[in-house]
Design a protein around this nucleic acid. Structure first.
Lengths: 344, 344
DNA sequence: GCCATTAATGCAAGCGGTTGCACGCAAGTC
DNA sequence: GACTTGCGTGCAACCGCTTGCATTAATGGC
């Protein structure tokens, strides 16, 4: 069946160890021999069996990537970037979807542990304690979570939430609702903390609604609550919820942004395509995917790197935010509803 | 470091082969021994090394899944379903993104071949010949392509295109444009063939524009061409292009559907959220993902299954299609622009 | 011309499991 | 009581590859 190192050895008249070295330590083999071996290998269509190699070297050249929900448009660009970056380093990516379930998350990490060089935990729902424990079993890089001693790539959502709230306050909004995300989400906690502080500093009242499933439906079903709370502006945990919320608000007869302004977080592609176009906090997902892979691979060299990379977020003003009932800041640009905005 | 079968054997006072059998052939070991071994394994945190097992058994319990572009919203639900189905059977999924590049596709299949039990090729861009060749190196299941002798899951896009065109013709459209997809796409050819036949039968003129990149931008940039062609209705290769096209048409001052009707294919989540909501052909992506995994795993038992599974498509009428200039069919329902439609 | 280096290759022991075969032993048959 | 039967277990080879060490031949120093 499959062609092995022995077939190549036989064909090129050398010992298997020489064939092995031709691939894993070429400088140790005579150039003539090397090219002969390579020719035979090529001709036979030989490909080293990575599983067998992993057994000895302990390196699998595989990376696990765990996300809460592949179908959430936030993740695919990150996965794509990670996969591409991994492939540059000749690594492959295992993708697993946990359906937002912390228990599944743990199980998947454990199942993957032995056959990967490390695991990327993206927006985990597990507890810090559990993550710390797992990180002793397999190299881990977390994305969107800060845990002392664990390498991480974090997007500065706190700043994102701050500028989002400042934007709303500057527009004259004084009653703002925050749609929080799923339980267990570090990002959601960060947003809440930062939004609360910013609202307080700006003299606005912040109503927190949630936790909610981070989906369109999660936003849709909560429109009533938002209206009942009398909020004139909303910051949602992510774009999907923001878009769902807008649907719900429109269905309930409210206008966006005339009656209620809505800000999302993530800047998924979708946000540019819905009507009104969504004002949102852009997060550098592709960069995060690349950085996480890089950290994991670097991690291999000098053990126990605990560096944490911070990535910046930006507010992208589009059409879902407008003037509120209160006085708006003089520093505020004229007509924020004009098409365009920062990077529409 | 990691706990191996030997550690468990030592701890439970049996030979490693007994430990091995406890996991891979429990009926061969005495219940008492079995429970003792299991207890030790549990206590030590033993997990069988799949790579080592694969070396002997030839089964890796891994599946490769290759898509053209993870970021295209068409794929994530399919990947999610496949991953979930695979996990039910204790398999893991390698995901690879080829950036719509046939050469990358080939390379990735080859790279993955040795470490998976089979590969799912979703909407491949490679030639049939190449796919046939690769299928001799590794079990393959193709999604959205029909090749004699290769197991496949195909969505009946030909029917989808037919009912989409019939819908447009019934609405009175006589000049229809077809935005074809990427070169190498079987789906695109099927759509073109079916749309052409249907248009001819219905007395409509079909202008084919393309090939195009299957993205929002692909649709956006082509709006001018559509208007220039004088088409009053368009069928796009996928929803992303349809949505981009609508953006482009609106930007160019055309109204949708008053001036131009647009139909997409796929029914991605996005199609329900844009304005106007997109009329589109729904494809059963999740079902396809599950079916493909099932076929691949069944494939293992009775070698050389070449069954092909056909999945049905449906037209979902939403708000992007309306009456055309020609006489509309008497069989046509009253106001197709009423909100709702088949399953809005 | 002899010895120490060095370069190139072979040898063989594993990595962590699986599996065909052989063995010991208790139970059943006559 | 000798003989089959079959269950439970151990033994050892092996999957495809890596790697420390031994071996050999060629090279250089003096």
């Amino acid at each position: 069946m499959a062609v092995t190192i022995r077939d190549v050895a036989r064909a090129s008249g050398v010992h298997i160890s020489t064939v092995s070295r031709t691939f894993s330590a070429p400088h140790l083999v005579n150039p003539n021999t090397r090219s002969r071996v390579l020719a035979c290998a090529e001709q036979l269509g030989y490909r080293p069996n990575r599983a067998a190699r992993a057994l000895i070297t302990g390196r699998t050249y595989n990376i696990g990537l765990i996300v809460a929900d592949i179908a959430n448009p936030f993740f695919p660009p990150l996965i794509k970037a990670a996969e591409s970056q991994a492939r540059k380093h000749d690594h492959h990516i295992f993708v697993a979807d946990t359906n937002e379930d912390a228990a599944v998350e743990e199980e998947v990490v454990r199942a993957l542990a032995k056959q990967v060089d490390g695991v990327l935990l993206v927006s985990p729902r597990m507890s810090n304690t559990l993550i710390e424990q797992l990180s002793r079993e397999v190299p881990l890089v977390v994305v969107n979570r800060q845990i002392a001693g664990i390498p991480a790539v974090v997007m500065d959502v706190a700043r994102g939430a701050r500028i989002a709230i400042e934007h709303l306050v500057a527009l004259g909004h004084r009653r703002v609702a925050l749609l929080s995300g799923p339980r267990g989400s570090w990002t959601s906690r960060e947003i809440r903390r930062s939004a609360a502080a910013t609202a307080k500093a700006g003299g606005a009242e912040l109503t927190i609604i949630g936790p909610n499933p981070p989906t369109e439906v999660g936003g849709l079903t909560i429109a009533e609550d938002v209206l009942r709370a009398g909020a004139t502006a909303v910051l949602a945990y992510n774009d999907l919820m923001a878009i769902g919320l807008i649907e719900g608000l429109l269905a309930a007869g409210a206008r966006v942004p005339a009656d209620v302004s809505v800000v999302g977080i993530d800047d998924i592609m979708l946000s540019r395509l819905t009507r009104p176009k969504l004002t949102t906090v852009a997060t550098p997902t592709a960069a995060a995917g690349r950085a996480a892979v890089d950290m994991l691979l670097a991690h291999g060299d000098d053990r126990r790197t605990t560096a944490q990379i911070h990535l910046q977020t930006e507010l992208v003003i589009r059409d879902s935010t407008g003037r509120g009932p209160g006085p708006h800041s003089p520093a505020d640009p004229g007509d924020v509803n004009a098409p365009g905005g920062v990077a529409s």
